[in-house]
Design a protein around this nucleic acid. Structure first.
Lengths: 151, 151
DNA sequence: ATCAATGCAAACACTTTGCACTGCA
DNA sequence: TGCAGTGCAAAGTGTTTGCATTGAT
């Protein structure tokens, strides 16, 4: 945890930004809820518990900043809300997601399944890929099991 | 064109909806701009030329309806705007996109590059895939050529 | 005559912006 | 003391909704 905060602090400093208390609290909330794909509002509420004076605009500005620095990815699952997803350390790409159309849960896929597809795209479409977004919609393990158990 | 309108009319009828004049004009605009990834506002403006009395809400409602019937896909490239993308005839999935981070152009990939990846996901994550969203961000052919020509 | 569909305006949800203020370098 | 960073409220933007009206069957 502290190590990752440190890394993010460095990333900020390299780009001439400071890790202010507000930014640090925001980053901590993101780290503590890493797998939850929080919206800005979600982050704001959790940050408020630790730092009640903070404003929503500051949270938005921090998330925007971290997005620019590629510390996190702003993702969008089709409800009109942006969600924020920390990158794994050293990850060059946004990771993949499985969104359940029954229960709404979101699972992450950490392994990069796309290198071969990307080779094809770069070769056949002459497109230099810098990042990707891959989301599968479908029925998750839990919901699938429940279906089997239906009377 | 007329054939595809006919198909969409059938899809609507099967679901107990009518192809009203407003809906038909909207569908025509979508067909005429098939590769352009129009936003609701874009569609509205083009529809207004042909049918000035139409309201924006009707366009939204039509797009929403066509999305439910899987005639089109509502997609989102990260700017806060929903875009609407007609499905190819008989296509079961949303197709892939190449978004250029320099010029903003969007190219479509019609071939489905994901079947192998989907097999892996279904097997290793026990997730029943019903649809996918795949977008690559990077530098398109044109912008790439321009870079090479820079003095 | 009924009821889906429409147009308009108001409401909504999420996000960004202007501005005065704060506080570290 | 200068300037990045902040908090608040107001403004923006894209989208949805309520409601009276319309127009097909």
């Amino acid at each position: 945890m502290e190590q990752r905060i440190q890394k993010i602090k460095e990333a900020l400093h390299d780009a001439r930004y400071k890790l202010t208390p507000q930014r640090e609290v925001t980053v901590r909330v993101l780290l503590e809820n890493e797998s939850d794909h929080l919206s800005a509002e979600d982050v704001f509420m959790k940050v408020k518990d630790k730092y009640p004076e903070i404003g929503l605009a500051t949270v938005y500005r921090t998330l925007e900043l971290l997005n620019e620095l590629k510390v996190l990815d702003k993702i969008n699952f089709g409800d009109g809300v942006a969600r924020y997803d920390l990158r794994k350390e050293g990850a060059k790409h946004s990771h993949h997601h499985l969104v359940c159309i029954k229960c709404g849960s979101v699972e992450e896929i950490e392994e990069d399944l796309l290198p071969e597809v990307e080779n094809i795209v770069e070769r056949d479409y002459q497109f230099q890929i810098t990042d990707h977004r891959l989301t599968f919609h479908g029925i998750c393990r839990n919901c699938s099991n429940e279906e089997d158990n239906n009377d």
